[in-house]
Structure formats: C-alpha cells, structure tokens
Design a protein around this nucleic acid. Sequence first.
RNA 1: AGGCGCGUAGCUCAGUGGGAGAGCGCUUCCCUGACACGGAAGAGGUCAGGGGUUCGAUACCCCUCGUGCCUACCA
Length: 933
Amino acid sequence: MIDFKKNYDPKEIEDRWYAFWEEKGYFKPSSDSEAPSFSIVIPPPNVTGSLHMGHALNATVQDILSRWKRMQGFRVLWLPGTDHAGIATQNVVERQISKDGIDRHKLGRDAFIQKVWEWKAEYGGRIIHQLKKMGASCDWSRERFTLDEGLSKAVREVFVKLFEEGLIYRDNRLINWCPRCHTALSDLEVEYEDLEGRLYYIKYPVSGTNEFIVVATTRPETMLGDTGVAVNPEDERYSGFAGKFLELPLTGRKIPVVYDQAVDSAFGTGAVKVTPAHDFNDEAMGKRHSLASLTVISEDGRMAAEAGERYAGIDRYECRKRIIHDLKELDLLEGEKKHPHAVGHCYRCKTIIEPLQTIQWYVKTRGLADDAVKSVEQGRTRLIPDSWNNNFYAWMRDINDWCISRQIWWGHRIPVWYCPDCKTDSGVQQGDIIEHVFFEPVSGRISGSYSELRKAGLPHDDIVANSKTIRVSKLVKPLCGKDDISECPSCKSRNIIRDPDVLDTWFSSALWPFSTLGWPEQTGDLKAFYPTSVLVTAFDILFFWVARMMMMGGKFMDDVPFKDVYIHALIRDAHGHKMSKSKGNVIDPLIMTDKYGADAFRFSLAAFAAQGRDIRFSEERVEGYRFFINKLWNATKFILNYSSDYKRKPLDQNKLDLSGRWIVSRLSFAADEVSRNLENYRFNDAAGSIYHFVWHEFCDWYIELSKPALYNGSEEEKEAVLCCMFHLLENTLKLLHPFMPFVTEEIWSLVFEGSGSIMVEKFPSNLPKVDDAERQMAYVLDAVNGIRSVRGELNVSPGLEIRADIKALSKEAEEVIKANLPPILKMTRSKEINVGMDVSRAKGSAIAVMNMIEIYIPMEGLLDIKAEVARIGKEQEKIAKDIMFINKKLSNEDFIKNAPPDVVAKDRSKYELLLQKKSKLDDNLNLLKTVEG
RNA sequence: AGGCGCGUAGCUCAGUGGGAGAGCGCUUCCCUGACACGGAAGAGGUCAGGGGUUCGAUACCCCUCGUGCCUACCA
C-alpha cells in the first residue's frame, strides 16, 4: 500500500523531479533522426535580469508546447540562453566599480570587459536557475549567450556581408543620444513620457528695424544653436520678412527667416526657431533651406564651446535657467506658459535623450523589411493571433534605417579599422581627420587629431589606449574584414585604429534563431531545427526583436526564422496596471511557485492565456488551481484505496457498465479538445477542457457512480471499475503533464511504478469512443439531478433517506434506470426508487419533470402545497416563455424559408419537447391543486 | 492626430449569425467511509447605448459614450 498524504505538497518533490529529468537527458532532442523536428529558441532574457511574470508566462507556454510535442513523438529542441544586454550590463558593472571609486576609463577597455565577464560568471546565471524552478524543459547542454564565440562569429559574418553589399554604412546625422549612458540609441530605445514643460516666448530682433519676431520654444537653451527662424508662407503676419535676417539674442549672430509649409501657424506665435543640430524636425527643415547646423550641446549633456563662453560647460538644464534669466535682463522674454509635451527618455536609464549629430553605423532596412512583410503576407510566418498583422505591416512600412553602433565597450566590437597613414579619395591625410579625446591628459594633451598628437611625440599605442572618444570623419575609408586587420592593406602601415564602437545588442539577437544552431557552420542542428517551429513572445518586442530576426533570417538563411509567432499577453496587476518596480505592484513569480507550487502557477498562467487580451493577474485563481491539483491528488488516493490487490489489465470496453462507457467517451472527447486547443495555441481552452473533465465529470460523476460497485460489488464489477479508473487516471495524467509536470510525474511514479517517466509517454490521441453511452447516460443524470433538485429546493434534510417514484416515458429509460439503481440511490440518498412506465404520482408527492422521465417524491404529509404549486408555476412560466419564442419563429414564413433546414428541424423538435413538458407540468399542477396535493 | 483592442453575472474573464457560459464571490444546507484545498441545491445578465444589415444580432457594419494600448507629433 502506497503511503499517500492527505493533501498534495509540492515543495518536497519539484526539485527532485527536475534533477531526475535533467539527469536522464530527457530535455535533449531524441536521437531518433526519423522523427519530425519541433524547435523553439527561447527569447533570450537579459543576462542582468531576474524572472518576472512575463518570463514566467513566456516560459510556461514554451514548456507546454515542448512537453506536448515531445510526448507526441517529435524530436524536440527548446534552446535556452541569454543576451549580453550591452548598455544594461555595462551600467551594472560600472555602478559596481564606481563604489570603489573606479572609472572604466581608468581601468582600460580590456580590463573592464574582463570585469564584466567576472560579473556575468557570478550573477549571470540567476534567471536560468529561476527558469528551472518553473519546470522549463530546455536543453541546457545547448545553452547559448550572445557573446559566445560561435555567436560572435555569426555576428562578424553578418556584419561583413552586409558591409560588403552596402547594406551597412556610416552616416553623420541626428540620432538619439543618451548623455548618461554616453551612447547612441535606436529609435526604438527611446521611450516617450508626458512631462509638464513650459513654452517660452522669445523676442528675436529684426536686423535694422525696431521690430521683433516672437518665437515660442520649450527648449530655450537650444537657441544658441539656432540657424534660422521659419514661418508658414501663407501666414500674413509674416509676409513681409522674405530675405530678412534676425539678430539671435545672446549671440549676435544673424539668422535668416525662411518660409516652410511644415510650420503650423496656429501653434505658439506661428514662428519657429530652427536648430538643426538638436531637433529632428529642425534637421529636416534645415536641409530644405540649406541652413547651417551648429552643435551647442556636447555628448555629456553640457553646453559645448560653440554655445559661447558664458554658457560652455554648464549642464543643458542649468543653461536653460541662465538663458531665461539673461533674456529677462534684456527684456527679450515676452512670456511663458505651462505646456505639457512628450519627452524622449533613455529606455535603460530614463535620462532625457539629446538629439545629437554624430557619425554612426546604420543598416539599410528597406529591402529587408519588404521581404519580412512578404513572408507574413504569404503565410510563411504566421502571427498568432493574426490581429497583429496590420500592426506589423504598418511598422515595417514606416521603418527607418537602424542605428546599430553604440559607444560602449560591452558587446560585439565593430570589425572595422581605419588607417591614419592613408589619404582619402580627395587627398586628405586621414590622420588629420581622426580626432581623439583622452580620458585624462597624456603628455599635457587632452585632445587633438591623430596627426597632431603623433607630431607632438605621442606613440600610436598610447593615443589609442587613452582615447575616451575617437571621432573618425565620414571621409576616412573603413577597412572591414572577417579576420582582424593588423596592417593597412594598401599602405601596409601597422598604425591602424579599430572602430571603438560595439553593435546594438539586438543586432546579435536578430541572428539568434540560426546563430544558436551553429551558423555560419552548416551544422546538423541547423539542418534539423531551422526554421524553428514557433517563437513565443510578447508584443512589446515584436519590432525590437521579432521583425529584426525576420529580416536577418530571410537575408542569411533564405528562409523565415520561425513558422509561427505566438504573441501572448502582457501580465498586469489585478487592477489592470502594468507591473513595475516604481509602482510597487510587482508580483514575483518565484513567490507564487513557492506558495502554490510551480504546477498550480503554471496551470493558472495557461488558463489566463486567452488570445488577444492582457492578463489581470489574480492570486486567488492560482489558489483555485492549487485546489484543483489537490482534487486530482485525492482522486488518485481514492482509486488506490480500493485497488491494493488489483492487477492492472488493458481496458476492455465490453466489460464496462454504462457509466464506464460514458466516462471513457467523455475522456476521449476531453483529450481531443486538449489537442485541438493546443494545436491552435488556445492554452486557456486546453486547460479548461481538462479541468472540467477531471473535476466535473471524472470526480463529480464517475467516482460517485462507481462507489456502490467498489464498496459492495462483485469481484468482477469491482475489477471492471478499477480497470476503467486506471485508464482514466493514466490518460488524465498524460493530458495534464505538459501543464503540470511535477505533480503528474509524482503521481505517475507512485501509481504506475516501474513504467518510467511520464515525460516520455505517448500523448493521448484517438481514445476509444462509445456512441450511445451519452444518450443512455442522460437518463441516469436526469434521475439524479431531478431528485437532488427537489431535495435541495424543498429543503429536505440531507440526512433523510427518501423514496422516489419514477415514471419512465420510454422502455429504454426504464431499463437504463433500473440497471443503474444502486448509484442513483446512493447519489440521491434514497432508500427506494420505483421505476416503470405506468408509475403514477402518489398523493403528497413533490414533482420533477425531466425530458424522458417524471419524478415523484412522496413527502409523507410534509409537502407544502402552496410552495410546490409556486415552484411548478415558476417552471411553467419559463417554459411558456420559451414556447412563445419558438412558436413565433416557427410561424414566421421567412424563417422557415430562409433558415437552414437543420436549424428549423432543431427548433421544431425543441418545440415538441417543450410542449410535452408543458402538458406534463399542467397535468401535475392540476393534480396538485384539485386533490389537495 | 492616426491605428489597434476592449466594454458579457458582484469580481476576473471565455464565447458563438439560431434565446448566453466558467472560475471566484454570494445565499441555503451538509465534516456522507478520496478530498471542508470538499459535497449538494440556488440566486444573479436589456451581453455599454443608438442605428443598420438579416428570417434571426451579444456576435457582422456604422455612430456615440467609456476605457486601455501602440505609433507619430507636440516649436
């Protein structure tokens, strides 16, 4: 006899089973190369991250799919890993070393990177460990990191190829710059937030007159870089200013008035200052009118030398105050007012970004994006739910070139070198236009062009090693190669300078579906598992990541990276707010697994995961699913209680009684539902199907129906029931295993001792069905439900055993009920039930009218006639309403003419049934009234 | 401003061109030999509002209101 605890306790078993599976190698793809492949690459979590709700849902979905497919016989690979999160990781380590007063520049590039690797070795595995707690069946032997040697090789290969094809290029234009992270950011890495700003009205004197043009701006500090003022050509207020100049206050520079359609006359004063070096719109406007571009804010967010002596070196927001103050002194500030507007922030550190003109590397995305769109349009990649298609198309249509260079150290360094000793095509010495800024003075120099510094006697290596920033003019010819370059191929100089920038982390993530499988080598994994079967992700990285993988996959693999993209919801708190640390509404998934067990938590996430809607997380529901697991546990315990000396036999349908045939049929139905729903990524429906079967069919009905046979039945009856029970339990556990791996494995091991792990069992399909069981079972269900209703509604004491008379309206009904009397008696707490086609109502009986039977329950003078009349009357009313409704439909010629015949037929038979029921209710009611009960 | 979505039982949400379902909560009753993490019986909904298409609309179309998100702009 197995020692079965009263209630299920997940704590002691989860880690044990996880270790067991891993040790057995079950997470690795089977070596059966004939089996069809099923592959998933994990969306690599940030190596600095720890598991949050989003990861938990994401991992649960992937694990359900992986375990399910594995049980279906697929050769499953779920490949895990993390990304190196360039900016985030660098920030973490910089903070760490700054506690010891160390700046990364003092440490030097190589030593700093070494520090980051050390940090990664110590803390980088946290999220992996947390995924294991969730039960994730990833193949850890294939775990990858975006900075691994192999993945770095892939990055290099891709960069060089794109460079050679001209799809990667350098350009000098305005980009989003984070002054704190000290790097460029892509468009996507900027988050806009509404802030309460101020709109300042500033008077710009018109040269040679006493007039002013008043401009309105939210960023007065940028006026130092103004190179024009624009007005709308239609704006009559400004019609006379063509060709005139303004005197830019605080600088004395003369700037032109230009006319541009883009100016909104209704906003502010209808005149807008133009600062091409610090605003994206102004940059475009400047280009249209050939205005100069003057950078007045530098990379650290302080005013640059060009801002003038009075302002240079002070912070951009301090400068704003000073400008306002100075304008007031000059009486050039006409006014100011509150003005809410959206301001871009760095997605990593939340610092307000500064548009800056810099030279960066870009990927030309147009053609790649068009191909990605085609793969969705042609269905080679499906987005699920497909309501995302339009969003995807729209974004891809408007995509800008992708800025991929970052001015940080942690990441894939750009494989490009520059030779200062060569000349540009136009004959300029390249060393003259490569500018170095040192971290601290070297031989008394803090900056200068490469040529100058060499002339001043600094050795090449010192110049490079001490450079905080290297600005390489666009004119300098980049040297790019698969292998590192140590000498200039044309002039053979060994004094070459490597581009200091690294690539955007997403650049390497974009290669993830094939770089992790060994590309650029043509590996067996690549052949077996690319394209991957499905990508599971949330919509918030659809563009960041999914779109870019599609672009790169199409370009380098000539095939989509995944056939399906299942886009799951975002998890919000119970009030629908996004979870965030600052709001303090974060729920830690590990606390959930600790409190309720990983299985209950996973099942909840699956049950929440309806397509197309965000999830409001409710802890109560997790608790509810823990109860469900306990229910399963106790059902198992019940079976084992009565089977200690039972030897398991294969299911023989001929030996089953009606309830057995019925429940076997229901199981088959439930199994089909689970599979069908999983096929369609309907995880909530799949979870619901199995939940309903286990609780409301298996436990509520079959176990109860089988009790008489188990308690008092013959050996044969008992054996038939147990045989059925084990069939149900076995398949239920298998159906549940992808959702709840731990408890199913635990029960499996206890019940089906010696049969190995449930993980490698076959997922149920094509289970036996029984056609007529449902119809016949309806009589039994009606009998039980009818009697229970009467008992409940008339408050018959639960302990009181009653008698019931059942009038069967068909021979079949009579026979079925007679054959199933013991469970009906037990389930209705009846001591006696008379069944027959000629049974009639005894005086003082309560009444229940069902479809094929009528039930009379003698109340021994306790029947409250008035209450019973009211009860029956209420039911009559309901039926009368239904009859009226259907009658109206059936007497409508258009309905008969236009509705599908089966619908009409269905309504007709429903109508007949209702009429019958009504007449029976009428008869019984008359009886009640006329003969005083 | 444009786009997408949502509004169904007290709450959280499924759902479908043929008179609406679940879980939790609520009411009444029961520790009946798997389970009180349980069992039985109930109550509860103009499917946001208005219009249209249809024999028939909660579902499809349009409008309004409320609500959430995304994208762009905001001098």
